[in-house]
Amino acid sequence: MTALLEIENLSVALKNGPRLLRSVSLRLDRGEVRGLVGESGAGKSMIGKAVLGILPRSAEVVEGRILLEGTDILTLPPAERRRRIGRIAALIPQDPLTALNPSHRIGPQITDRLVDILGWKREKAEARALELLAEVNISAPARVMRNYPHELSGGMRQRILIASAFAAEPALIIADEPTTALDVTVQKQILKIIAGMQARHGTALLFVTHDLGVVSKVCQSLSVLYAGKVLEDTQVADFFRAPGHAYSAALLAATPKYTDPEGSLMPVGPEVLAAVQAEVDAADREWRHV
């Protein structure tokens, strides 16, 4: 069976600059939830951006393929690529405070894709939006549809963005650190809502996060990244039992434990970092030779 998303040997680089993603490969099946973990700057968000076709203008794909339902989207003409991505995938963005357009009401921001891209009737799209808002536990969906973003709280806005991502029943949703910008108390609710929505709709989820706790709760598989290179690609259960890479083990050890609140934090040791950096450098040398 073809995978929903298959990334093969993807390298993204700054124009005339260093690589941000180093020959990344990963696979996501229908309904699978995969975590993408790593430190800030490890390139985990960059993978999501490449899949969604929203790489910053300063970066470009220099090698590799991104197969979405079996078609390499990188070879499609821009208009067709946009439509294909819009139909198959959706994004739950990181910061709900900046991800809604301040001068449009909430309603149209949920229904726009249904009406403009998928050609639904407005009434049908609005009924669907109301349903989705109720599903993410918004108590007065009809009123919220008429609100402007600045009238709503951050948690509320993130729920709206989640509802909006699920609106067109995409096969793939990329959640780009969807709880990072939120209050700790709200984070848990949002995580629960995303997990619940994912389970009900059977959507495949690429969950970008630096929080291994989140991964253990939501994901089935995960990829560990360092400096744009996938160090380990494994099942969540195996990972927490026996991480396959020294860096992964150090990362896991560095996670603060609720069971030991007084314990001091364990940074990733310098010898581990040196080893992983050597691995990255070796990959770069090899890449330049090809």
Partner: peptide
């Protein structure tokens, strides 16, 4: 370059539509 414009791009809108619909008014 703002987030809501990027989000609109992922929905499948063309560059011209994104400029006129999402960015211009703000």
């Amino acid at each position: 370059e703002l987030d809501y414009v990027t989000l609109a791009r992922t929905k499948g809108y063309s560059e011209t539509r994104v400029i006129l619909r999402e960015a211009l008014r703000n």
